[in-house]
Amino acid sequence: MAEEGRMQMLKKVQEADFTAYDLLLYLDTHPDCQTALTKYKEAVECGRKARMEYEAAYGPITASAASAAAPWQWIKNPWPWNM
């Protein structure tokens, strides 16, 4: 199912982005922790790749990623609360 595929691909972005954000909060109070910084870098890179794959298949996650195609893709359904 196309819908299943979208959710699976988006989940990869969500997993990587969440990992990065949790590490970001940790780094705020542990700015000298090299281990956390390395993991943060990995999560950000993983998220960047997953995001590019998702956006190529299903459309922009950020508005700036919508600049390539006409008509304006940003407003296209589904929005997150309706996925």
Binding site: M7, L10, K11, V13, Q14, D17, F18, Y21, P60, I61, T62, A63, W74, W79, P80, W81, M83
Partner: peptide, 13 residues
């Protein structure tokens, strides 16, 4: 803030 067109965690009820 810039909006990202995704939830932090998937929701499908």
């Amino acid at each position: 803030w810039m909006y990202e067109k995704k939830l932090e965690y998937p929701i499908k009820i």
